[in-house]
Design a protein around this nucleic acid. Structure first.
Lengths: 196, 196
DNA sequence: CCATTTCTTGAACAATCATTCAAGAAATGT
DNA sequence: ACATTTCTTGAATGATTGTTCAAGAAATGG
């Protein structure tokens, strides 16, 4: 017997970066071979095919994001302030030079074609996105009733999606923050103010 | 001499539908040959290459959408109510079976890759999106000061983007409407209420 | 009615795509 | 040390990609 001579998670992370930047279709297996260092045969033995590798990338990205969210909510004494900090981080990403939105958002828009040739992958992506909404709703139910928490979670998701797209326009951080404050006026934005 | 034996606008519209549903990369020239009825040679004589045809599709889509917006704003006596009606229409699209978001939003996310191989097309898409924002800002400046109108236009764009992505989740029309009302509370939603 | 120009045709092109597989290397089980 | 299993290698496969071009058809100009 012989054990795998590469770190599977490392390979998935490298592939995730490529898929994230280029998209599913535009990322070629040749590029993946290059950026992972593996030969085609090893890749196909480990992941089956391109879809299998993409599925692993989506799962890893989703699990990581969800874990970060849950850790943040578990350790904070103010869900609202934590959410403000999350948005603040997203604004920082949006104004950075090599901004490339959110992997799940990009994947959903690319995979949701009429022919539906990637039905399994699309469902996976949508499950990951739905799971994120659940995490927000659960956290908010600490401060609000269940109905209200779910409604607020939907509003948060809408703003995340909006920001993930709007981020490509070269707005200033102040403009983006102001826009979020306008739509999410119930959040305690004062708690993250940096100006004096 | 011989004049073109096909209606160029008709060809662009057919190609737009395909690009919109499938995306730029996934839509193959063979598919375009099929859905337009033209032979490759004619397509390449008329549009140069795939990028040229895509550019025409984006321009046509953008010009059409902008014209509709401007016509609506020119003929209404309430900008706010018209905007509510626009969102109401977007909700209807979102809950329909063959929903495929907004062509410009999808194109922006697909073309904005790190390698930036489609820089010209990306810029075109972003210009179209920026033009939409200007139309909203101009319309709102009828009711608000210029600064406020621009801020509100940014908020509208963020909500449009959010809805264009969130629309893929199978939410009810009521939930989507409620989410928009939460973030755009300054709009006169009462004016489009259908319930009694 | 011929010459010229413009458009159409569709087979063919090179490049790239995802994927395969026989052969060799390496690690384990006994 | 040997047999067995598992992983690696990388050239090769057939399909599909965007694009071209020589030849023919059609319409116009004089």
């Amino acid at each position: 017997m012989s054990r795998a001579q590469f770190d599977k998670q490392q390979v998935i992370d490298a592939a995730t970066g490529l898929f994230w930047q280029q998209g599913y279709q535009a990322a070629s297996m040749q590029q993946i071979v290059q950026c992972t260092g593996l030969k085609p045969g090893s890749l196909y033995l480990a992941f089956g095919n391109k879809q299998g590798l993409f599925a692993e990338a989506i799962k890893a990205y989703g699990a990581n994001g969800r874990a970060q969210l849950q850790a943040l909510f578990a350790s904070t004494d103010s869900i609202g302030r934590s959410i403000c900090e999350i948005f603040s981080g997203m604004i920082s990403e949006a104004i950075s030079k090599d901004y490339c939105s959110c992997f799940l958002v990009k994947a959903q828009l690319e995979l949701a074609t009429e022919g539906n040739t990637h039905a399994a992958l699309l469902q996976l992506v949508q499950e990951e996105l739905a799971a994120v909404e659940v995490v927000y709703a659960n956290a908010l139910s600490r401060d609000f009733g269940e109905q209200k928490a779910q409604a607020l979670a939907r509003s948060i998701m809408l703003h995340i999606f909006g920001l993930r797209v709007y981020g490509y326009k070269h707005n200033s951080a102040e403009q983006l923050l102001e826009t979020l404050q306008l739509g999410l006026s119930w959040l305690p934005w004062d708690s993250i103010e940096t100006k004096h």
